[in-house]
């Protein structure tokens, strides 16, 4: 974990309110894990005062990429920062997705709602890389990185409309099967991505043991956990949360769990579905 001023290499709108930011962060890029985030100061002034946490979208060499949605003043300011300018960042922070050797025996289902796509592409990338390494160990003739070994994963992306569907191409390039759900039926399944998940699960589970990884609004995560519990599918969710410090000091971003309050920035942002207790205001997201 470092506090460092880094150069903006790229910062452009990709769709509607969604922006793609690329920072050059040598030293720590290779140590970053899917699900971890950086806490970014968008300007040098007191307005906005606090940093903004952005989850890692992808790592390429010494570059760390972010995908963010302009939702308020801070992200608005960030969207206007230009390549060549510097940003003060702290990271990588948080726990990241828990990937154990057993993880690779399970077929991953990635469920993204809106900007929740951001950390899941990095996760898919990491899973694909691990699949590749394992294929290489089994068969030395398989040329490492000559051609990406397909990641046998199912990716469900939920969006309001087809114009807001993010990173479909990138997931497909990794070999994932991608299914889309839109609220207005402009692409794929008409309805919530959670309903799409509910529809495909009975068949999917009959083939192989599964693991679910999700990121998106809280009502969506809550519903996914409820569904996955029925099928006994191990589920990890990455929470979006407002933070003050991002380093575990202020105790501002707590989440209710079976073991009491946990800090989203430190013990999270990734939680096991079965440890979360949804109460009161958290329920409405």
């Amino acid at each position: 974990m470092l506090q460092i001023k880094v150069k903006i290499l790229y910062n452009k709108k990709i769709k509607v309110n969604y922006f793609h930011l690329v920072l050059r962060i040598p030293k720590i890029a290779k140590d970053s894990l899917p699900g971890q985030f950086f806490n970014i100061k968008v300007s040098d002034t007191c307005e906005p005062l606090l940093r903004r946490p952005l989850s890692i979208h992808r790592v390429k060499g010494t570059n760390i990429e972010f995908l963010y949605e302009v939702v308020g003043r801070a992200t608005q300011i960030l969207s206007q920062r230009r390549p060549g300018e510097y940003l003060d960042v702290i990271g990588p922070l948080g726990n990241g997705f828990n990937l154990t050797p057993n993880t690779y025996n399970l077929t991953p289902i990635l469920v993204a709602g809106g900007i929740g796509v951001a950390p899941l592409l990095f996760l898919a990338d990491k899973l694909a890389y691990s699949v590749e390494r394992r294929a290489y160990r089994k068969n030395k003739k398989f040329k490492l990185s000559a051609k990406r070994y397909p990641l046998n994963a199912l990716v469900l992306i939920g969006a309001k409309s087809t114009g807001q569907v993010l990173r479909k191409k990138e997931f497909k390039a990794l070999g994932c099967e991608v299914k889309i759900a839109t609220d207005d039926a402009s692409e794929g399944f008409k309805g919530k991505v959670t309903e799409l998940l509910k529809n495909i699960l009975p068949l999917a589970i009959s083939h192989k043991p599964l693991a679910i990884y999700a990121c998106g609004p809280r009502p969506m995560l809550k519903e996914i956990i409820r569904i996955s519990k029925k099928y006994n599918i191990p589920t990890q969710v990455s929470l979006e949360e407002h933070m003050a410090c991002g380093i575990g000091a202020c105790l501002g971003c707590v989440m209710n769990t079976k073991e009491g309050f946990k800090r989203v920035c430190k013990e999270g942002p990734v939680f096991n579905g079965d440890e979360i207790i949804w109460v009161g205001k958290e329920e409405v997201g």
Partner: peptide, 9 residues
């Protein structure tokens, strides 16, 4: 401590 959300800007 108190329930979340606990901070806002």
């Amino acid at each position: 401590g108190n329930p979340a959300p606990r901070t806002c800007e």
